[in-house]
Each structure stands twice: as C-alpha cells, then as structure tokens.
Nucleic acid binder design. Structure first.
Lengths: 336, 336
DNA sequence: ATGAAAGCGCTAACAC
DNA sequence: GTGTTAGCGCTTTCAT
C-alpha cells in the first residue's frame, strides 16, 4: 500500500504537490511536467488513497449503511441496487447489514455511527423490533432515514404507496368477479400492513356490491401465510380469493393450499404484493403487484444525503412508477 | 462523537491515561480513583473509539469482506451467519458485498484492499467470472480466501465435500430403484459442478446394474434448470429421476415439470444439493442434501485469519458435519 | 502513577 | 508553481 510519501519520493516532489494532483484540486497550479511525473509515479506504485487517513482528516467516512431485516429476501435485491447506484453517484460506498445483528437493545447502529464507520443509515426496521428500542435509536438529530417503515415522532421516512398496492390487488380480484376476498396481512403493528389494509378496504368499499372484509395479521413469512390460510379455510364462508401482503407469505399460502387440497387458481385466487424472480417459479406462477423498490432505494439515498447535509427532511412516498399488476397464473374468475 | 481528549478534559487527566484505561491495557498502572473518574467520564460522554483513528494508527481496519455472487440467495444465509459469528469471535467486523459489483476487470476488491477498508477478503467467485480476471486479483501474497471455489495456482480455498453431496443424492435415487438418473449440473467450468459430477459418477459406477450417465451443464439459476429438463425430456429414454446440483435450479426444474405436465415425484423424482427455507415451500417440498454452510463460513474466517497472520495455508475441505439427506416429498420409487 | 510527544496518511492554509 | 506545517483521533515510548 503505497502512500503519498512514496509517490512524492519517486516523483521527486513534495507530498502536498502529490495530494493536489491526485485529488484533482481544480485550483491547483502545477506545471504539466510535474503533474505527469506525479501521475506516472502514482500509477507505477498503484497508489490508492488510504481510507483511514481520509476519514480521519474529513471526520467523514463517505460510507452509508443499508440495514434490512433479511438480506436474502429476493425483494431486497432491487432495493439494494437502487441504493448502491444512488450512493455511487453521490460518492458514497454502501455497507450492507442485517437487522438481525441489530438486536433490540443491541447497539449495532450506535456503534456504526459512533465509531464513525458510517456517516448515515438507511434502515428498514424489522417486524419484531420493539418501539422502545427504536425510540432511543432515532432520537434527536440523527443521520438515519427509514425505508419502508415509520416510527412515531420520527420524521424522515421514505415509503412506497402501499395503499395503492392493496387497492390494486383487491380491484384485480373484484374485476375477476370475486366477492369473498380476504387479506393475508403482515403484523398489525407494522405500517406497511396497515397501509395495505387501507387500500384493501378502499377497494372493497368501492365495489358496487359491497364485499365483506376479512383480514389475518400474522406476518410476512411463509409460515404466516400457511397459518393464515388454514385459519381462513375454517370460516363458514371461506374466501374464493386472497390478497397476500408479501411474496414470501404468498409462497407459504401456495404450499398450504396444496396440503389442504385447494386448487389455485380454480378454487382460490392468490395475488401477492411485491414482485421478485421467485414469483415466476412457483406453481402456478404468482400474480403480483410490482412495487418500485429500485426507485425507493435511490430516493432513500437522496433523502439521506439531504439529511447529512443539514437539510430538513419530511416523510415522502415513492409513488412513481406506480404499483403495477403482473398477471400470471394464480388468479382466475371464481368457480361457477 | 466524543474523543479521548473530551474524556480526558472531563476527567481532568491526560489523553494517554484515558487511552490506557479504555483500551484495557493490562500493563497499565493507574490508581483506582483516576480509573473510575475516567470510566465515568467516558460513560457520560458515550465515548466510542474512532474507527479511522484506530485504523490509521494500526494500519489495520479489523474488517473482512465477504463477497458472494448473489446476496439474496437463501443458501448464503447460513454462510453469512458462520462468517459473522467467526469474525465476531476474532474481533473482526464483516463487510458484505455482492460479486456483481465486482465486474470482471472492475476493481472493487482491489480498492477494498488497496484503500485499507478491509484487511482480507472471503470470496465466492461467481460462475461467470473470467479466469483471467481472477489471475491478477489473486496474484502473489494476497489476503484472500476462496470459499466454495478454487482457482488454478491459488492456494487457500475452503470448499465443501461436493463429491459426497453428488454421491449421496444419487445413491438416494438408486436406492429408490431408479436406473435412469440424470444430473442437472452447474457450468462445466466451475469446480463445484465438476465435483458433484464426480460424486454422481461414483454412485452410478458403484450401482450393481450400471446405470447410464446423463449430464447437463447449464448453470445454477432457475432458468438453467428449466432448460435442462426440457432437454432431458427430449431424450429417447428420458430419466425417471434427476439430481439437481443447486436448489434454485431445482425450483426451475419443478416449475418446468408443471409446464411439461410431468408429475413430481410420480413420474420424476428430484433431489437438490443445498438446503434452505425455500425447499420446504415448493410443491412438492424438495428432497435435498443439506451442506454445512455455516461451518464453511466459520472455517473460512479461521483460514483467512491464519493467512492474515502470516501463516502458510493450504486448501481445505469442510466435511464435517457430513452432507445430510433431507427427504421430503419430491422423490419416490419409479413408476412401475 | 501520570503526562508529553511522535507518528500513522491525508488535506489545506500559508509561506516563498 | 512548489514546499512546509498543523492537525484529524489514536496508541505507545519515554520522561518524570
């Protein structure tokens, strides 16, 4: 690892001259000759500016953290892409971390920030994080932006239009002729679940023949989907279609339907919110509502950037491009 | 962000005294009184050692990078856990990155190391990375350990017992009475695929009535699985069972089987190498060979640690715990 | 038992 | 146009 000193020695100039040239200081006046000697020397030594040196000098790391509940969730691939591209453009590097490591009461984020490893945090809070754990974490002027989540009293969330997503999915089923439509939702405590329920209700309310409401609130994991379906099928009048608020949960629903001997889509239509490669590889392939997660990531970075530069920021909803229905084969008109 | 100076000022002592106390310098002689004043001050200021300051001082970041082809692959969840726990024990922090960002010819790893952001790298090379791109990257004394992959002339790989995995999967099918067993494998250029083929052949060769060999080499993605199955079903004598070298590929196989109207397991048995939650949520649930990925991660960290401390390291195979068959519902005896 | 000072790599204000 | 220097936060040798 060559240092500025090494380059300077090789080029026969001072350290500061090297610094000026290599950091593209516009206001620097250096003769073309020395400039070339310097760049040549740097190249031959394969010089790279030392991260710690810069971070120390600037009291800034130029790193932001992206923390999500589960990195292996296929849905997050798009989010990550958006965040990474946005960060790149703004000269930041992204540090990926799992929220699991952020044990409630644990101090992962506190350390990341406190030790100066990262300048800011993009955080999607997991479903099972206690509100109190967040209270202290999000106190006061704090270089954090919440994605896909909100916290009471905290300003600086970027979310998706989950109301529209719930509405769109429900309308699709209504359009096919279903009237007994259930919502298999996330935990009642999560904002996204609440929003999707709002959209679901809106669509039901709007339907000419008002359809009854039926919601389960078990979470976004496959197991939650399984549990919900079992519960719904115990109803006196079970649904002929379900909106599932999450794709992983929908995969569970599909699995449980097989176990229960319910044919999809003949006896039960299934739409899921969020799209990912997994939706194309279930049987039947899942009809989904694709959400703009890439754009959410980019916008999250923009918002965090603004916050890091002292701007006041408000909560925003990324509604463009609008949620889009991806009709595959898990939805059909109800059986006659 | 309080510094040592802040703590020192508050405690009314020198910076070096604070440093000694807070870094638990065993050989430091400090009076209990000052020690307490110092720890109190540090606590009240919520002092955290600055990362850049330490890294600069030690010329060491205490960070290692884990780079995998696709973070959202459910199979990697276990690997990550192993790496993170191992790293934690050794006082390292893990930086997660996707190999996608490591464009061939791109210099992501070079930068990570060259800028001193990380001390070492655990790298699983993707299937589509050109050998030449790796040549320069793995040159000379290099703080890198390859996981689940090898490179000619490079010493320091930790791999799994993929031969055993291929053998075990094949033997399971032979035991059920199948004789026409195909292997839906990864790219022929990848080490893991080659190893799994060896195991497959071993098992076939050992079978009393030698079964014919049939292998496709299209890769580990769902699409590769789909393509392979279509190809195999075009054979004069199509297989009654397949070993699929990867779980995602197997998901594609299952999907394509539905499209082709082939019932699993009645008409076609499917075993996949690697296990993850997704295997429990396909239909039918996938029989798999579970590999010790957690242990691979831990061992990878150990190996990297040794390399970082100047030890000569050799290639190793993590064979404990041994690959284990997880029988679910995608395998059955062949139709009469 | 405690403090002063040097130096890790870097940048920028200030000489010359 | 180029060099000298101070200082970011930290540890450690050397004084006292």
């Amino acid at each position: 690892m060559a240092t500025l000193g090494d380059v300077a020695a090789l080029a026969g100039v001072s350290i500061s001259a090297v610094s000026r040239v290599l950091s593209n200081d516009a206001s620097a006046r250096v003769s073309p000759a020395t400039r070339e000697r310097i760049t040549d020397a740097a190249k031959s030594l394969n010089y790279r500016p030392n991260f710690a040196g810069r971070a120390l000098r600037f009291s800034r790391s130029n790193v932001i953290a992206l923390i999500v509940p589960d990195l292996t969730n296929a849905v997050f691939a798009e989010l990550m892409r958006g965040v990474e591209e946005g960060a790149l453009e703004r000269g930041y590097v992204v540090l990926l971390a799992r929220a699991e490591d952020m044990q409630p009461g644990g101090e992962m984020i506190d350390r990341l920030l406190g030790e100066g490893r990262v300048d800011g945090v993009l955080l999607q809070v997991g479903d099972h994080v206690a509100q109190e754990a967040l209270d202290s974490m999000l106190e006061a002027p704090n270089p954090t932006v919440l994605v896909n989540s909100v916290h009471p009293g905290f300003s600086g969330s970027v979310t998706l239009d989950d109301v529209a997503a719930g509405r769109l999915a429900t309308e699709h089923l209504l359009g096919l002729g279903h009237t007994r439509i259930a919502l298999i939702n996330g935990l009642e405590t999560t904002y996204t679940a609440q929003q999707r329920a709002v959209g679901y209700r809106e669509a039901l309310g709007r339907a000419s023949a008002a359809a009854p409401e039926r919601i389960t609130w078990h979470g976004y994991e496959p197991r939650a989907g399984r549990m919900s379906l079992t519960e719904l099928m115990g109803d006196a009048e079970p649904p002929t279609a379900v909106v599932v608020a999450n794709i992983n949960s929908a995969i569970g629903v599909l699995g449980e339907a097989r176990v229960l001997g319910i044919r999809v889509p003949e006896e039960l239509s299934v739409v899921a919110v969020h799209d990912a490669w997994t939706a194309e590889n279930t049987w039947p392939p899942l009809t989904t509502v694709k959400m703009p997660l890439y754009e959410l990531g980019r916008h999250g970075v923009d918002t965090l950037y603004a916050r890091l530069h002292g701007e006041e920021i408000a909560d925003t909803v990324v509604a463009e491009p609008a949620p889009e229905l991806r009709v595959r084969e898990s939805t059909a008109p109800p059986a006659a």
